[in-house]
């Protein structure tokens, strides 16, 4: 003990302490770091069918490489690198018709009528992109079938995390400079899940540590409930855009009807 104490003021002591401190912190961080469920990130693509990857590569070269580069390495502003975006990103972007991009713009709009790939082709493309680097995989069926989902819980999560951009009725909202959070009516549950997982365009990533898979399913169930008329009470919703719709209605049809009645009464003799 006394021998150790004599080294206390040695110049080496500082370096040793620093080394120990950093090692301890790093080890503790690695041990306590929040880890996502292993199945969400397909780190190893060993199980992927090599044929799928090869077919996907061909599709990629024909349809995507002009912007994203032959090896999906990215091409400046034309298209980002796709290494690590995962199969979920491909499933979302191609499955909703956003990619291949129809025209350059501030944001790729959903284009459900322009999905020119079969689901198999999309899967092959996804397999190829997933082979480039580890990334989120397409969502598990278990979390997109909406069985046993808690709508009320989904609503709370939606209002906290999503409503500020997508509107509390998921009708969409404006972002800066022409970008927008799209209307979520009619979007496939699996695409909504992938969007949360991959954070396309301006959307933040909600990984499984932020919103668990079960909570994601709840959110999707909440949105689908709106789509199926779960909020439709009291008559026509005027587009569910809040007081703006009410104002337009009352200043046109509402007061129009009454002015019509007033004119009729004014012309009517006693």
């Amino acid at each position: 003990m006394s021998k150790l104490a004599t080294y206390r003021r040695s110049p080496i002591a500082l370096i040793v302490l620093l080394f120990l401190g950093l090692t301890f912190t790093g080890t503790a961080y690695a041990a306590l770091q929040p880890t996502a469920p292993a199945d969400a990130y397909s780190a190893s693509n060993a199980s992927e069918d090599v044929d799928d990857v090869e077919e996907g590569r061909k599709l990629f070269l024909a349809n995507c490489a002009s912007c994203h580069g032959k090896n999906a390495e990215g091409n400046g502003t034309a298209g980002p690198s796709l290494a690590g975006v995962g199969a979920a990103a491909v499933d979302f972007q191609v499955g909703t018709g956003r990619m291949p991009l129809a025209a350059p713009g501030v944001q790729a709009p959903a284009n459900p009528n322009q999905v020119n790939f079969s689901q198999q082709e999309i899967d092959q493309l996804a397999a190829f992109v997933a082979s480039l680097g580890p990334g989120p995989d397409v969502p598990d069926e278990e979390y997109t079938d909406l069985e046993n989902a808690d709508i009320a819980n989904g609503g709370m999560i939606f209002r906290t995390n999503c409503a500020m951009c997508h509107n509390s009725s998921a009708q969409g909202g404006a972002l800066t400079r022409g970008k927008f959070a799209p209307d979520l009516m009619g979007v496939e549950p699996s695409h909504m899940y992938s969007a949360m997982l991959t954070g396309p365009q301006s959307m933040p990533v909600f990984n499984d540590a932020t919103i668990t898979p079960q909570e994601k399913e709840n959110v999707i169930a909440f949105i689908v409930n709106i789509e199926e008329g779960g909020n439709s009470f009291g008559g026509h919703d005027l587009g569910s855009i809040g007081p703006a719709g009410d104002a337009v209605f009352i200043w046109t049809i509402g007061i129009g009807l009454l002015i019509g009645a007033a004119v009729w009464l004014g012309r009517k003799a006693a």
């Binding site: 409503a163 500020m164 951009c165 509390s168 809040g242 703006a244 009410d246």
Partner: peptide
């Protein structure tokens, strides 16, 4: 929520 407006 997006689209927060008061009454007209």
């Amino acid at each position: 929520t997006a689209g927060s407006q008061p009454d007209f």
